[in-house]
């Protein structure tokens, strides 16, 4: 298995940037978790076309820690969404553990989002009508974990991110940083193979263990 190492990929500038390729040193036999092939994303805004991704090729091996940097508007969030199966690319393919995401039906996609990927969004996106505990429990319930077990694990993870005493609070009773930690706890709930984090800024240096 590959050891944990860090790489920084520059996301080139908009709009006529060259496609960025980063295919080198992951050898043929490496354990790939994510691979994209010529992924483009064009947003249609009325008459105007916005080329958010212009042919992205990346390979990310299992256990690798990658950060993608670039100015705002350079397509980081779009790439995050495409890799996470949250939007469809305009062209190209995304492979998660060698499976072409485009081949999956709605149920399989839900399974992928549920079991394989943990998301930490730029804007937290925790469910406002649920408590911290319920937010972390929910993905486990979707995955079919028995409720008691899910709850125990949720309490445990919330403790790990330092919210042991905030378990029954709703998002509006939590500070921004605490909401972010709920989001982090939630991302780890189903022990995903991939954690995608979109500008998790201030609070990610907490505990990303597992």
């Amino acid at each position: 298995m590959s050891s944990l190492h860090t790489k920084t990929i520059p996301a080139s500038d908009m709009p006529d940037r060259p496609a960025f390729n980063w295919l080198e040193d992951t050898g043929e036999d490496a354990d790939l978790t994510v691979m994209t092939r010529d992924v483009t994303k064009i947003y249609q805004m009325g008459e105007e076309k916005i080329h958010a991704l212009g042919g992205v090729n990346i390979k990310i091996a299992t256990g690798e820690y990658i950060s993608i940097m670039g100015p705002s508007g350079s397509g980081k969030t779009t790439l995050f969404n495409v890799i996470g199966g949250l939007i469809k690319p305009t062209s190209g393919n995304v492979f998660i553990d060698e499976i072409d995401v485009a081949q999956l039906d709605a149920n399989e996609l839900a399974w992928l989002r549920c079991r394989k990927i943990g998301y930490i969004f730029q804007s937290y996106n925790i469910v406002k009508v649920l408590t911290a505990l319920e937010n972390v429990t929910l993905p486990m319930l979707f995955a079919g974990v028995p409720p008691d077990e899910a709850q125990d694990r949720a309490v445990y993870i919330l403790g790990r991110v330092g919210l042991g005493d905030r378990v029954l609070h709703t998002p509006k009773e939590l500070s921004g940083g605490q909401q972010q930690r709920v989001a982090i706890a939630r991302a780890f709930a189903n022990k995903p193979s991939i954690i995608l984090a979109d500008e998790p800024t201030a609070n990610l240096d907490l505990k990303t263990g597992e």
Partner: peptide, 29 residues
């Protein structure tokens, strides 16, 4: 490319959870 052994399970909808979420949503709002 190394072959990975994982198969995709089909998720099942839990009627109990549907009911719980619906009632919760009505209560909270």
């Amino acid at each position: 490319m190394a072959h990975k052994e994982w198969h995709i399970d089909r998720l099942k909808m839990k009627p109990g959870l549907v009911w719980q979420m619906a009632v919760n949503s009505l209560k909270v709002r």
